[in-house]
């Protein structure tokens, strides 16, 4: 078992309802349990399909079951499926050592669509994230997913990207096995392709 940088290692996957946040955390968790880790995942559900902010808290440990909620200020890694959501979690959970991997495609909240609020400039958001974290990787996951024909691939692309950072011991074979348990066989190749695309994106990004 690869020794984690910290125990527990606290990961937040955040995004907007409908982005496949819960599935991403479930797959990630299963990949780690297969590697022998003790994992706890807390999910903000209910709102998950209805355009609200959605967060999954993952606690990854060598030995202990931790609570499904990460204490304030103790997040080690944020996987942001949406840029503003990534920034938002840093308010309560960030710290100077946090690592960020962020899909850059904004999803406008209805208050922004309606004109009652403003969506900030993306560059500004990324700048703020950089200033509040140890390192930021950006991935154009939704655009890549749309190229593949379905925006829902973006969560798997993000997992692929995460695997390339080397922060967590993620292996393609583990994913393949888990996808086999979750999906009908015909859906597996495209998901693996999405994973690979995400990996490549980060490898190109930080050779």
């Amino acid at each position: 078992m690869l020794l984690l940088e910290k125990d527990p290692l606290n990961v937040i996957i955040t995004g907007v309802g409908g982005q496949g946040n819960v599935l991403a955390s479930q797959i990630l968790g299963q990949m780690l349990v297969q590697k022998g880790y003790v994992v706890t995942i807390g999910e903000t559900y209910g709102a998950s399909q209805r355009g609200g902010s959605v967060m999954s808290h993952l606690r990854i440990s060598h030995k202990d079951q931790f609570s499904p909620l990460i204490p304030q200020g103790l997040c080690d890694l944020v996987v942001g499926l949406e840029p503003v959501e990534a920034l938002r979690v840093l308010g309560p959970y960030g710290n100077p050592g946090v690592l960020m991997i962020v899909n850059t495609r904004p999803i406008h909240p209805i208050d922004v669509i309606s004109g009652d609020a403003q969506y900030p400039d993306l560059e500004q958001v990324l700048k703020e994230i950089r200033s509040l974290s140890r390192r930021l990787w950006t991935v154009q996951a939704t655009d890549m997913a749309l190229e593949m024909g379905d925006p829902l691939f973006s969560n798997i692309i993000m997992l692929g990207a995460l695997s390339a950072t080397g922060i967590l011991p993620l292996e393609r074979e583990d994913l393949e096995r888990i996808l086999g348990e979750l999906f009908p066989p015909e859906r597996i190749p495209a998901n693996l392709e999405a994973y690979d695309k995400g990996r490549e994106a980060v490898q190109e990004y930080s050779p």
Binding site: V16, G51, G52, V84, E85, L87, I110, Y119
Partner: peptide, 8 residues
């Protein structure tokens, strides 16, 4: 910077 996301 992060506008609220109300449920819809």
């Amino acid at each position: 910077h992060a506008p609220m996301r109300q449920l819809g």
